[in-house]
Design a protein around this nucleic acid. Structure first.
Lengths: 209, 209
DNA sequence: ACTTGAAATGAACAAACGTTCAATTAAACT
DNA sequence: AGTTTAATTGAACGTTTGTTCATTTCAAGT
């Protein structure tokens, strides 16, 4: 057989992405064979090469997409400079959790499989990660400058905060004991104290459902 | 040729372990071939099967060993119950950093490649991880009970602390800007605040070089 | 010097790998 | 209805994979 009834390039590409994300997260990039991936969507292995030139390009695409989506969403959600550093930190914290909770597979990929990228591809993804991290550092720096926060080493604190928050995805399960909102609140509490927040007041970006 | 001059089973086994740890950390379990591993130590691939029945057993051995070493070292370093919770938390924090800094490859393995274990092997390693985590939860619980610490959710806080600390190994480089001691001090500061420590006094287990 | 057994080998296995390509089908367009 | 073109296939490619096994070499024990 060849082209199948109701087939559609765009939908197929999305299906490949979705299945690849799941399979790589579950078994690892090297452990996922192109045949197995194709089978998952009911395709022959050869069909995959219409959409991605090779396996490495597929991985890169997933990781680049994951980071681009993060940066895009952050650009929309972020609270900017006139706002107090404390509010901006709360905004960052809640955004990070909210954005990553439903994307645990992408999170896992994007720092488990960085090593499987070619050097150039790695550099591209790494640059995006740094850009995100730098935004957090800026918040902590500003808080340090105006006395609303107290981190002795903002660069270190930024890494600590991100590791802390990203770690949530390793244990979170959609119907677990804690709701996303409870997790968010608890973590914001911890992060605020960790960064030496003087007084804790609610930020504007945090309240929506 | 066959047996080589100056060869020694025990030394060879150690060499296999070391090389496997490095290769898997660098390229992933599935990406490491037995031939490549053997070549790394100047051996034929068949020789590996004298020491490990198969590839999976080798991985399991590395992960089990990594956890066993952690639990052993922790049993020796830990501060126990009569001691104040704050001191025990500091002891845990400093121990965790000190123990993991020179073992970044093992750390990486032991939560990147858990998925590559068979279910029974996974359960065995996971049980050890839980045991370690529970010790931290106990400390936080005790601190909560006697008022020296203030974590609303000790289980959550324990995960946050561990993620935070373990994250260090992803960026730490032996000759980086910060010494292990500076990192230790900075992180203890953050962790203490995160867990709502009332007053920060030095613990006995923390001072040695 | 002789025997024994640990240590390692090279060749072979079937299976699976990523990838290419000419051929084929069905949808879309005229 | 006929033509074009996007979507997919099956078969084949050369490699590489984990693993087995009879064989060989060398060190240690007597």
């Amino acid at each position: 057989m060849a082209r199948r009834a109701g087939s559609d390039g765009i939908r197929t590409e999305a299906a490949i992405r979705e299945a690849a994300l799941r399979l790589i997260a579950r078994h690892g990039y090297e452990a996922m064979s192109m045949r197995r991936l194709a089978e998952e969507i009911g395709l022959g292995a050869a069909a995959l090469y219409r959409y991605f030139p090779n396996k490495q390009a597929l991985l890169f695409d997933l990781l680049r997409e994951h980071m681009a989506e993060l940066l895009d969403a952050w650009d929309k959600a972020r609270l900017d400079r006139p706002a107090p550093a404390l509010a901006r930190l709360e905004c960052f914290t809640r955004f990070h959790i909210r954005h990553h909770l439903p994307r645990s597979e992408g999170v896992f990929l994007s720092y488990m499989e960085l090593r499987s990228l070619t050097p150039e591809n790695f550099a591209a993804v790494e640059a995006m990660r740094r850009r995100y991290e730098q935004d957090l550092i800026d918040i902590l720096d500003d808080g340090q400058a105006d006395g609303s926060l107290d981190c002795v080493r903002p660069r270190l604190a930024a890494r600590a905060v991100i590791a802390c928050l990203t770690g949530i995805t390793t244990w979170y399960r959609p119907h677990g004991a804690l709701s996303p909102r409870e997790i968010e609140d608890s973590y914001w509490d911890m992060i605020a104290r960790m960064c030496g927040a003087r007084q804790t007041e609610r930020a504007t970006c945090s309240t929506p459902a």
